[in-house]
């Protein structure tokens, strides 16, 4: 089939990563989970994780597009 599924997966998680990171950065108060008194901005942390995952998927998709797929 003519669709590399890494492309939509990469796009979606990059988008969600940007959304969560942005929300975590601009709305710190609303993004915090308190554990034993320690404040964790989980939106910021997890947003970056999603962003990295999405970027890796996109990288895989664009790289295989340049090199012809092995028969």
């Amino acid at each position: 089939m003519g669709l590399d599924i890494r492309l939509p997966i990469g796009l979606m998680f990059s988008l969600l990563g940007v959304l969560l990171t942005g929300y975590g950065a601009f709305n710190r108060a609303g993004s915090i989970t308190k554990i034993d008194g320690q404040e964790i901005n989980i939106n910021l942390i997890w947003g970056v994780v999603l962003l990295v995952f999405g970027a890796l998927m996109l990288l895989g998709a664009t790289r295989s597009r340049k090199t012809p797929p092995p028969a």
Partner: peptide
């Protein structure tokens, strides 16, 4: 609103995949 945005983005992508594949 941010939760609904995540949800909608997901729905948009799965529908998009269906649409892209329809022509095959």
């Amino acid at each position: 609103w941010v939760d609904y945005t995540v949800l909608l983005a997901y729905v948009a992508f799965v529908l998009g995949i269906g649409w892209t594949l329809a022509r095959y």
